[in-house]
Design a protein around this nucleic acid. Structure first.
Length: 942
RNA sequence: GGGCCUAUAGCUCAGUUGGUUAGAGCGCACCCCUGAUAAGGGUGAGGUCACUAGUUCGAAUCUAGUUAGGCCCA
């Protein structure tokens, strides 16, 4: 991949040779592998190599043919509405690292990345874009859907490029042909708006429906009475508004209570009182009955002062009520002939009001939830345009925004109004019409949880959670999650294919009708639902079960987008013959404990009766260098595409991913990346040194592992075996930061500082084999080290490939000269080099070397020596008895070691070396008539 | 406000069931080498284990609380 470095090096070398006449007789490192990675330029070439040679695809095919075991990491689809951020990079690189490790373990590892395409954020972005046009196309569902599809398609392609640039292994050839006009059913990736996927969303819905887990209920949503549409959270803006602030008395009776006793509530929405079905108390507050001119009033004691100040009332006596007494109260609606149920809930606070909350389950989320537990209906006698329905005959047809004064009058009349004033507060408004919103219960489709909850807990217990606390968090979430509301009152998504009888209003849905629609969607895509009339979507002869009528209207809600991605196991894995269910791994951010992991689990439980995953791995969030969340307003974000890859390259980003413990939150910043780049260079230079000595592999073509005979080489191969054990174990446990720690330590300390320093002399200066191939003992010593270096670099290259993919491929290409890839290699087994006794033998050697180094440092301070070869060491007769003095001298990188029986064991003495500096190898020794040391004299044959 | 998580040298991480002076790499300082050279080697300085109070003969490790930050809810 590179050839332009050679010349500068050559001239530099010629100059050196002039300085020292012996330089040309020694064997210096030579390599095409540059010291600096220059990754931003080089990586795209390597990516091109992978793509042009179809490396991923070929490995996959050969593994398929050989019947290799499958490892499946199922991709959670990112949302197709922007560039990839660092969080995406973390997620995708982690997945890729895992996949590559298992590929190198010889498995069949298909990676089918996905994209999530429907949903509100895209629809809102499209509407915003369309809003500038005056033709009100932003309100045309057909245009919205068309534009949304184009929008998502665009970002799929952008993110696909980002993903490939990160070095992620997948087949990206197919995605390039995707356009808004060319929507097809891909085999190398998935997207939730493909015709096949949209149809299988409906199939999954049908399967769950047919098993009885889907029902129609009511739930409050933010509703705009002006446009008669539901609003999502994102479409709400809070503005200051003036509302009535009233205290209302609900007649209460109990055997222990006097006549004229009242429960008092406070509300700012009097118009919701006709829908009142309950009064909520806090289960831990203390409540008391106060004797006042307005009657005996029950409020929370904690609000006594505030209440009497606000209402200008005073009390003559008070009496506490127990929680038990409260639960026995019978409470009447203030103006309707109806009981108001006593409820308890944590949503009751002492911040304002009376500590008792007016509860209308059809008009508020808290009210809905507490009502759900108590079995109350989400009652809301208000129509699409915010008018009371006939259910509240007194004011039927009146708009609720005009109703507040009327309700006040009514309360006054009945003597139920304790006090009335006004309040200025933040109130939700529509971002489109700017009108105040109301909450209103509408009919919606639900996925019932209760029938599956026990199974969900069982499956969660069977799943392996990384980190392990994920299990508790997940279980706590599924234990108390309410039924899943599947309906969304939006346009961009898969419709809920339900009908209403035009005559009697009965809902019409059956597996038969669902099957019919599914087959239409498979043929024509999802637009068929919107394009055709109800009669064209129903199977022939469909009639209303209730009244027998045959005219229907389509319902207009779409499915929650979480349902789309939640059935990816169904739509993607089930459809293929090479992807098992459950998948081995689901891996996403920890926010998905509530999101995708759950939306995947529930449908899978309903349809298959088991979880779609064996392991769930979560990573934390990415924070800036100060540990704060990245946000546009803080301006503290950094992006992979613009900030990281152009400056450092993808391998540095990958190294960052590997270096951090992803299970916690992680920080990133330019300083940190610069540090990582330093570590990268350490690793890179370690390889460079090996490659230089191996002459990019040419030097060792005739070598085999049998050539490793020297003790020192065997010792470092044992070190390699220990490392291999540790990092293989770390990969298996998905602890990549341990791989990083161990490998960096191995490169900088074990190899660079220890091993290379020791063998430098023999690599450079020992004899090379003569022309006939025969060799001296010294030549054999050199070959031993070269063979060991080859074994080390071959192994390390593969061990690091899942992390530093680009760099390891670069090295592999340089040394193999083939079309093959480093990723088609097998995980090297180096366990044969394990040697405990040798390791033990060397332990005392390193201890004494430390001792010698400290003494040498003293000599250096005194200007007695410079390099360690200017020193010699005297050791006791007993120390290191299994090593020869020469072996010890080489290991200490000093010129000589002499045994002195007068020294005590463990004590050594460092002195200036005797003899003269050999001009060839720089070791101090008595020189021969050639002017060289004995070893060099024998090597050089002039 | 609730549930869960995180906090060990400037940075990234170790620290097994509580047990001697809390470890490693990077970075930093100083020195050496100049045949890995925008490299390499040696030595060394850095920590009240976020804080507080407990349990214990003994706590980075166990308990409770506090602070800061994060995720999910409300």
């Amino acid at each position: 991949m590179s050839e332009k470095q050679g010349k500068a090096n050559d001239t530099a070398k010629e100059n050196e040779q002039e300085k020292n006449p012996w330089s040309h007789t020694i064997c210096l490192p030579q390599t095409e592998f540059p010291m600096r990675g220059n990754l931003p330029q080089r990586e795209p070439e390597i990516q091109k190599f992978w793509e042009e040679n179809k490396v991923y695809k070929k490995i996959l095919e050969s593994r398929r043919k050989s019947g290799a075991p499958v490892f499946l990491l199922h991709d959670g689809p990112p949302y197709a509405n922007g560039n990839f951020h660092t969080g995406h990079a973390l997620n995708k690189i982690l997945k890729d690292t895992i996949n590559k490790y298992h590929t190198l373990q010889g498995k069949y590892v298909p990676y089918i990345p996905g994209w999530d395409c429907h949903g509100l954020p895209i629809e809102l972005a499209v509407q915003k874009k369309l809003a500038n046009k005056k033709d009100s196309s932003d309100k045309d569902p057909i245009i919205i859907r068309r534009e949304s599809r184009a929008y998502a398609t665009n970002f799929i392609k952008i993110q696909a490029k980002d993903q490939s640039r990160f070095g992620v292994f997948w087949d990206n050839s197919e995605v390039e042909t995707l356009t808004p006009e060319n929507q097809f059913n891909p085999s190398t990736f998935y997207y939730t708006m493909s015709p096949q996927y949209e149809a299988s969303i409906l199939k999954a819905f049908r399967d769950i429906y047919s098993k009885g887990h889907i029902y129609k209920g009511k739930k409050p949503v933010y509703w705009c009475p002006v446009t008669a549409t539901a609003h999502a959270e994102a479409e709400i803006e809070y503005k200051e508004a003036v509302s009535p602030s009233i205290y209302v008395a609900f007649p209460a009776s109990h055997k222990d209570l006097p006549q004229e006793s009242f429960v008092v509530i406070w509300t700012t929405t009097p118009w919701t009182l006709p829908a009142n079905l309950g009064v909520s108390f806090h289960p831990e507050f203390s409540y008391a009955l106060y004797n006042t001119p307005a009657g005996h009033l029950l409020i929370a004691e904690g609000l006594e002062e505030k209440f009497f100040a606000a209402t200008n009332l005073s009390f003559s006596a008070k009496e506490s009520l127990s929680q038990e007494q409260i639960s026995e109260l019978t409470v009447q609606h203030p103006f309707l002939d109806r009981e108001s149920k006593v409820l308890f809930g944590d949503h009751v606070t002492l911040e304002a009001g009376t500590g008792i909350v007016h509860t209308a389950p059809g008009h508020g989320m808290d009210d809905y939830k507490v009502g759900l537990d108590a079995g109350l209906e989400p009652y809301s006698p208000v129509d699409h345009y915010g008018r009371y329905t006939d259910e509240f005959p007194l004011m039927a047809g009146m708009k609720v925004k005009d109703a507040n004064p009327k309700i006040l009058e009514l309360l006054q009349e009945k003597g139920r109004l304790i006090h009335s004033s006004e309040i200025r507060h933040q109130y939700p408004h529509s971002w489109r019409s700017h009108a105040p919103l109301i909450m209103r219960a509408t009919p919606q489709w639900f996925f019932a949880m209760d029938g599956l909850r026990a199974e969900a807990l069982r499956e969660a217990g069977r799943t392996l959670w990384i980190p392990d606390w994920g299990e508790n968090r997940f279980k706590a979430m599924i234990e108390n999650r309410p039924d899943w509301c599947l309906s969304r009152q939006r346009h961009w998504g898969v419709p809920i294919p339900a009908f209403t009888c035009e005559k009697c209003g009965e809902t019409h849905m059956s597996t038969h009708s669902l099957d019919h629609i599914i087959s239409l969607v498979e043929q024509h895509g999802i637009e068929v639902w919107f394009d055709r009339a109800a009669s064209e979507l129903l199977p022939p002869g469909a009639t209303c079960e209730k009244c027998g009528h045959n005219q229907f209207a389509k319902e207009t809600d779409i499915l929650d987008v979480w349902f789309d991605s939640g059935v990816s196991w169904y739509s993607v894995l089930k459809d293929r013959d090479d992807t098992p269910i459950p998948a081995d791994v689901y891996l996403e951010g920890s926010d998905q404990h509530r999101g995708w992991f759950q939306s995947s689990l529930w449908p899978s439980l309903a349809i298959e009766g088991k979880a779609p995953f064996k392991r769930v791995i979560t990573h934390g969030y990415i924070l800036d260098e100060k540990g704060r969340a990245m946000s546009k307003s803080l301006g503290n974000g950094i992006e992979p595409n613009t900030d990281i890859i152009p400056k450092f390259g993808a391998d540095i980003l990958r190294l960052w991913v590997a270096s951090e413990d992803y299970r916690t939150d992680n920080t990133i910043g330019m300083d940190k990346l610069s540090h990582l780049a330093e570590s990268y260079r350490k690793i890179r230079n370690t390889f460079r040194y090996i490659l230089g000595n191996l002459r990019d592999g040419k030097e060792v073509e005739t070598l085999s592992s049998r050539d490793v005979t020297d003790k020192i080489d065997l010792y470092f191969l044992n070190e390699l075996a220990l490392l291999a054990e540790e990092i293989t174990n770390a990969y298996e446990k998905y602890e990549f930061h341990m791989v990083y720690q161990k490998v960096l330590h191995f490169c900088t300390v074990t190899l660079s500082s220890q091993y290379f320093d020791i063998i430098r002399d023999r690599l450079y200066c020992d004899a090379t084999p003569d022309a006939s191939g025969s060799q001296t003992a010294e030549a054999a010593r050199r070959r031993s080290s070269l063979s060991a270096l080859k074994i080390i670099s071959d192994a390390l290259m593969v061990y690091l490939a899942p992390i530093l993919s680009f760099t390891m491929e670069e090295i592999f290409q340089l040394t193999s000269n083939g079309k093959d890839s480093v990723f088609s290699q097998a995980w090297p087994n180096v366990s044969i080099w394990k040697n405990d006794s040798l390791a033990e033998e060397f332990e005392s050697l390193w201890k004494l070397k430390d001792f010698a180094n400290r003494q040498m440092e003293q000599l250096r301070k005194n200007d007695a020596i410079g390099s360690s070869t200017e020193a010699m060491v005297e050791i006791s007769g007993q120390d290191l008895s299994t090593f020869s003095p020469d072996e010890i001298a080489r290991a200490f990188v000093v010129s000589a070691v002499v045994r002195d029986s007068s020294l005590s064991p463990g004590i050594l003495r460092v002195k200036k070396a005797e003899g003269e500096k050999c001009p060839r190898c720089w070791i101090h020794a008595p020189l021969t008539e050639k002017g060289l040391c004995p070893r060099c004299s024998s090597v050089v044959t002039i």
